[in-house]
Nucleic acid binder design. Structure first.
Length: 214
DNA sequence: GTCCGGTGGCACATTACGTCA
DNA sequence: ACTGACGTAATGTGCCACCGG
């Protein structure tokens, strides 16, 4: 399956112990700076608030956790950069941060989260793809089972099939069942080599999994 | 060459904030 | 005004690779 990346086929289990990870203390909502996405702070304010955060955290170690929304332009540039490369080297990170007027750490975090979102989306797509494939195989299996039943029934009293060309009875080994149209057909290869018992089901394409939607 | 501690980067899980229906 | 769902920025933790002593 070329569609599926190798890494995604392995499952990793992680056990997290509740209460093990230290979490910051809950803060009263009044301590949170209100930010309206429609009234985004100016770039200067943005930077100032970021630096403010850094200072606060360095002073008492318990900085209020503020969440800043990225502007559309910042998001656009980050997305553009992500399309080119899913990881950044320190120089790229620094220059991108400078360009976006963000801290390098914020750019780094954005890329980490973006990679995680990307992977999640990919996993969901693969899940859908496998579901559809499973459905397709189930259906194919059902039809083949039915075909086997029909062939077994035919074996009890096989009707003589005459060649449409010569009107002569055809050997059983030259007959195959086309699962697509469910019609008995002759197979050229087996007709030439009567000893062959190869069963030609249909074109290989009908056995391929469904195309993964993008 | 090997060991060891420090450091940086990443994946992953989780938390918490902002927005919207 | 309130609330729950959702998206996502931010944080915490563990793992790994690399480097210098």
């Amino acid at each position: 399956m070329a569609v599926l990346p190798g890494s995604s086929s392995s499952l990793e289990l992680t056990i997290s112990v509740p209460g093990f990870a230290s979490s910051p203390p809950l803060l009263p909502s009044s301590s949170v700076k209100e930010l309206d996405i429609n009234q985004l702070p100016s770039e200067e304010e943005w930077i100032a608030s970021n630096m403010e955060d850094e200072e606060e955290s360095s002073i008492n170690g318990e900085a209020p956790r503020k969440k800043l929304r990225l502007t559309k332009e910042q998001s656009r540039l980050l997305e553009e950069s992500f399309r080119q490369n899913h990881t950044l080297n320190p120089k790229q990170k620094e220059s991108l941060a400078m360009q976006l007027k963000l801290r390098a750490r914020q750019v780094e975090v954005w890329f980490q989260n973006r990679r995680a979102r990307s992977k999640l989306k990919q996993t969901e797509m693969e899940c859908e793809y496998l579901k559809r494939w499973f459905g397709s195989l189930t259906e194919q299996n059902r039809r083949l089972q039915r075909e086997v039943e029909e062939l077994r029934a035919m074996k009890v009293g096989p009707p003589t099939i005459l060649s449409p060309h010569t009107s002569q009875p055809l050997p059983a080994s030259t007959l195959t069942m086309c699962p697509r149209c469910e019609r008995v057909t002759t197979t050229a290869a087996t007709a030439v080599v009567p000893t062959s018992t190869t069963a030609t089901l249909s074109s290989p394409k009908s056995h391929q999994p469904p195309e993964a939607s993008s």
